[in-house]
Design a protein around this nucleic acid. Structure first.
Lengths: 179, 179
DNA sequence: CCTCGATCCATAACGACGTTTCAGAACCGG
DNA sequence: CCGGTTCTGAAACGTCGTTATGGATCGAGG
């Protein structure tokens, strides 16, 4: 009945990839709908017919970023000693954040005014904590930690890592500070 | 020789106050140069002749916010027991952040794309830590903490507080979580 | 094979943003 | 009262997110 569509799933993926690249390599200011469309060789109409809004586009990047982030934490090799694993998870957390600071701030900062994560989106961020909760449970079972709800300890450790990384990325560290 | 200026220090203060109010009550999106000028009853030219740029305006708000934040921490009554004081400082930290989340995110998030703090600006943020460092030193002197550089412990505690508050404000907490 | 009508998409437009320019209003010394 | 200097509001520029539109494009019916 009509022309075949160019604004298809393949283009959706290319847009998502380029959006991630722009964000990661040039920062939040570089990610504009016009720029994105031009870099991918299409028009803003394409982005709007595939995503609907900048907010929805960034949400896709947000979920993608949490996916990769979680994968990196899942990939941390377990040593058998849960306390060692907790330390390794913390190091991996920091390395993942420093490897791509802009994506990290899309996940945890509100760097792009158009996008604010919905409650449903935060489930993706909570899933990131799973390896952490597992290690805490193991440590508790072996009596290596002061007894307390595993989730409480996990959140406290997560906050510690996030706080350190966040201060480091924000430049709020004393000169030449090294933990 | 010429007309007396209306764009004077009094107006500068009124602009700063209104900018803080807009930010605090309506969030970062509400703070535009046009809106600010209109609310104060002047023109954008005034803002530019007094501040030069949005970046500089927000920097002024940033420093003001850190001033108030530091004052709240300085005002925490000391109990004599440094460990109690550390806990109180943490509680005061959280209360200050929750009392004005938008200002907190101007201080520690990059909520306004136009403004990124310079190295000199972070000195203001480090000064906020002084009461914390003092309490840590006292605790160390009394053998209440495992020996380590006071600054290291202080930064770790600060990061813990900042991490918890930051996750809480960002909604990255499990449902009904209470430490 | 050609036309018709349905479908899609790039272009251009709209309002708001940060920032800058500019013409005239406002003032003081003479 | 007037000249010249200083100041200021209004308008202009380019960019942003988003939306409307008119022409281009193709499959089906004759």
């Amino acid at each position: 009945m009509a022309r075949p569509r160019l604004h298809d799933e393949a283009l959706r993926v290319r847009l998502l990839d380029e959006a991630g690249r722009l964000l990661s390599e040039e920062g939040p200011a570089a990610l504009s709908m016009r720029r994105l469309a031009k870099d991918v060789g299409t028009s803003t109409t394409a982005v709007y017919s595939l995503y609907g809004s900048k907010s929805a586009l960034v949400r896709a990047v947000f979920l993608e970023a949490f996916g990769r982030f979680g994968a990196r934490l899942d990939a941390v090799p377990l040593s058998g000693d849960p306390l060692t694993d907790l330390l390794r998870l913390g190091v991996a957390y920091r390395e993942s954040a420093l490897a791509d600071p802009h994506l990290y701030s899309v996940m945890f900062g509100q760097v792009i005014p158009e996008f604010e994560p919905e409650p449903e989106d935060t489930e993706a961020s909570l899933a990131t904590m799973n390896p952490l909760v597992d290690a805490v449970r193991t440590a508790l079972a072996r009596g290596l930690l002061i007894p307390a709800p595993a989730e409480t300890i996990a959140v406290a450790l997560w906050a510690q890592a996030h706080g350190l990384v966040s201060l480091e990325l924000g430049g709020h560290m004393p000169d030449g500070f090294d933990l």
